[in-house]
Amino acid sequence: MAKVESIKVKDETKMKLIKIAGELEKQYGRRFSIDEVINYLIDKSTLKPELLDSLFGSLKGVDLYNELLKERRLDEERSKRKFWLLTQEL
């Protein structure tokens, strides 16, 4: 059996996934889990990347790669400060 993980999504995103699950259930006549819906969307996005953009939106005109690097650096700095403080308390 595959390992199951939890992920955090906004309520709005969860409702969109449930709506898509309902549409798939109506179309195929069987129940769809949220995992199956996500995999369905991933598979569809490889054929139609604009599908995910229309469902979940995307940032226009933003250098996402550099934004990601910047946020990762900030996360690393916060982690270093946090763990440094923890080692000082011991």
Rank of each mutant, 00 (worst) to 15 (best):
L52S: 09
E25D: 05
R30T: 04
T46I: 15
S58R: 15
V9L: 14
P49L: 07
D53Q: 09
D11Q: 13
D43C: 08
I18E: 13
E12G: 00
V62P: 12
K16C: 05
K10Y: 14
S45G: 07
L41N: 01
I34G: 04
F56P: 06
P49N: 04
R31V: 12
L51P: 03
E25H: 04
V62D: 04
E12C: 00
K44S: 11
Y65E: 15
L41D: 00
T46F: 15
L59H: 11
Y65V: 13
N66D: 09
Q27D: 12
V37L: 04
I38A: 12
D35H: 13
Y40W: 15
I18A: 11
D53L: 00
Q27P: 00
L47R: 12
M15S: 14
E12T: 10
D43P: 00
I42T: 08
S58P: 00
F32D: 01
N39A: 07
E25W: 03
R30E: 01
Q27V: 01
F32H: 08
K60A: 10
G22T: 05
Y40F: 15
E23D: 14
K48P: 00
L64N: 11
L59F: 14
D35Q: 12
V9G: 06
K19T: 11
L51H: 04
N66I: 01
D53S: 11
K26W: 01
R31H: 12
E36Y: 08
D43T: 08
V62T: 10
K14M: 10
L24Q: 05
M15H: 13
K14G: 08
L41M: 07
I18Y: 02
E36W: 07
D11C: 05
N66V: 04
K26D: 05
K44Y: 07
N66H: 13
N66F: 07
L17K: 05
D53I: 07
M15W: 03
F32Q: 03
L64W: 05
L47A: 15
P49V: 07
R30P: 01
L47F: 09
K10V: 02
Y28G: 00
K16Y: 00
D11W: 10
I20E: 04
S58W: 09
L47S: 12
A21M: 08
K14R: 14
Y28C: 06
A21I: 07
K19D: 12
K44Q: 14
D11A: 15
R31I: 12
K19Y: 09
L17P: 01
L24R: 05
L24G: 08
L52T: 09
L64H: 06
D35F: 02
R31E: 10
L55F: 11
S33K: 10
K44A: 13
Q27R: 15
F56T: 07
L51R: 08
I38P: 05
N39Y: 11
L47I: 13
A21Q: 12
R30M: 05
E12L: 06
K10A: 13
V62R: 12
R31F: 11
S54N: 15
D63E: 14
A21S: 15
K44T: 08
L17Y: 02
